[in-house]
Design a binder for these strands. Structure first.
Lengths: 343, 343
DNA sequence: TTGAAAGCGCTAACAC
DNA sequence: GTGTTAGCGCTTTCAA
């Protein structure tokens, strides 16, 4: 394999333990020795073998974040925050990708693939509460997102019901009365979007509006195309909606495309609100009103909790609910006069 | 630590080697024994310790893909293909993230962090050819993207000059005469976008059009906001362009926003073409004409070459140039009657 | 301040 | 078809 501790020890004429101490600083080393060893390290280009270290110490300094979708900017952004937080705490964060696949989620949660990982942050889609409870692996696990709750692990997620309530309330306050929900899941058992759907229903009830089945659009996935398709279906109906609350921004963006293609105006004919506050919605035409979860907080808290647990100084596992806010833009408020870009 | 081979061997009343053979299948095992061992494995929930395996065999079955930007859908999509290809070849692909940072790129290339990794696919931004040549690590390395060439490693990238030529030629064929380039890099030394810039200049020359410095917009990064800013600057000029070729789709999308905000029409007043063919451009308003590199091929070939090298059966390192094509949409051709956005 | 040595879990060479 | 065993490179205890 590569250059090992032994090679350095030989070269510098010291023992293995001394080299190890120069590298890790667990014990003090004489100045002269340290210099000699460091020189050998530089000359030979020594790099510690993580596997060996892990095998011996049980720690790798690596944690993983498993996300369901790579092509959803929400997760990309979240991952960015998590990676930076992990780095600042002296850990390396590896990104894993489940493709929303149940088997992959189970494998990861079980640690089959890993073992090289000190802990895992998982954003599950298909995993059930029972799966989590049946888990055998003792590797620390932190869950994020709305899909699994009340398990003996840290769980980080915003209050999805409340956030959805705010979104729908915003549409109601604008005078909209036929408000659609886009992104109910075809899988009615798991219904990954159940919390946001519930918030939608509650908000309608609060406003004294009826919940119409025909205004709930299903999707099998949560991408732009799903939003496009669902919205087209809805526009083909006798009585189309005058506003749309989408499960997430990607669905909202797809829906906006469908509305535009149909020759309708946003927000005059149909107002649209999304969920996630991905950057794309700040540049789309029109720009997209959305619910902005505190992604930075979610990422940082998830990493922080996990590392605390890895290092053994963690309290009882619990729920953390980062904040969110409503960000209003053109898709519900209408186009502003273009800020005079000089000329 | 967890359950080990020894625990299983004890439980099943066999030797370590036999359990190892049940797990790995290197040697045949008697049916009765296999069943007994498998049972013990299931009961105890045994999971092989990758670090130990690695330490012994020098292989982990893990390769890494290091990308510069997480929030650029181009890389997310590429990563998706790479991950799937790796899985189908029996490897796990870990995603690393350099944030376009030189130090991080160097560290990764040097394998400092890794050691647990059998090989690395790197999409460099700041790394120079000299850096790559000075590399000491013997871990197989595959490079992707336009930034480093002529190094003793496999290098996968489309012909960026030719592709840019095609893009600009498309604008010329539409009768555009004042064609801007958006996304020249402020760092003129490295100039990460130099190949696309060269293609732009060559195409103008071919068409007999002058290369005007005032029509080359610089950006420090390659995101939507950079496109927005650069385009605003250009629109403030005395003679704005009648077409824009952007370094990538994100810049193009940002530029489109700036054009729309200025009250101008796309493509009537200004045509826009991007590079990458990210999904967003198929749903934007208007949809975005772009150069579509064969991302799937790039991802698959990169993984395939790397694994071949890891397993020792690889030929001379070389260049691979996947294909690309021009995808025309509304941002250059104008709005069609509402029809499905091409997929 | 430094050294010697045990052993983490596994694979593979060698024996039977 | 199965068992024994030497180490892979490292951390860490015990001794000096």
């Amino acid at each position: 394999m590569g250059v090992s501790l032994k090679d350095i020890a030989l070269r510098a004429g010291v023992s293995l333990a001394t080299v190890s101490n120069v590298v890790n600083g667990y014990r003090p080393v004489g100045e002269a020795t340290r210099v000699r060893v460091q020189q050998a390290i530089d000359e030979l280009g020594y790099v510690p073998n993580l596997s060996a270290r892990h095998l011996r110490s049980g720690r790798t300094g690596i944690i993983a974040l498993a996300i369901p979708e790579l092509d959803n900017p929400y997760f990309a952004e979240l991952a960015g925050y998590a990676i930076r937080e992990a780095r600042s705490l002296g850990y390396t964060l590896l990104l894993e990708y489940t493709d929303s696949d149940r088997a992959t989620e189970l494998t990861l949660a079980e640690g089959n693939r890993s073992q090289i990982i000190d802990g895992l942050i998982l954003s599950p889609v298909q995993l059930t509460r029972a799966d989590v409870l049946a888990r055998r692996s003792t590797t620390p696990l932190v869950l994020i997102g709305e899909n699994v709750a009340e398990v003996p692990h840290d769980h980080i997620a915003i209050d999805n019901v409340a956030a959805s309530h705010v979104a729908v309330q915003h549409l109601v306050s604008l005078g909209r009365r036929r408000i659609a929900f886009l992104g109910a899941h075809a899988d009615t058992v798991r219904q990954p979007s159940r919390l946001r759907l519930r918030g939608y229903q509650e908000a309608l009830a609060t406003a004294g509006l009826p919940v119409e089945e025909s205004l709930i659009g299903t999707a099998s996935r949560f991408g732009r195309l799903d939003g496009l398709t669902a919205m087209r279906g809805m526009l083909a109906r006798a009585e189309p909606p005058d506003a749309v609350f989408a499960y997430n921004d990607l669905i909202a963006l797809g829906a906006m495309r469908a509305v535009t293609e149909a020759g309708l105006r946003i927000p005059e004919d149909i107002a649209v609100i999304g969920f996630d506050d991905i950057e794309e919605g700040r540049f789309s035409n029109p720009t997209l009103t959305t619910i902005a979860p505190d992604k930075e907080r979610i990422g940082r808290v998830a990493v922080g909790s996990l590392i605390a647990r890895v290092e053994g100084n963690a309290a009882e596992p619990g729920e953390v609910q980062p904040s969110f806010r409503l960000v209003t833009r053109e898709s519900t408020l209408g186009r502003f006069t273009p800020a005079p870009p000089s000329r």
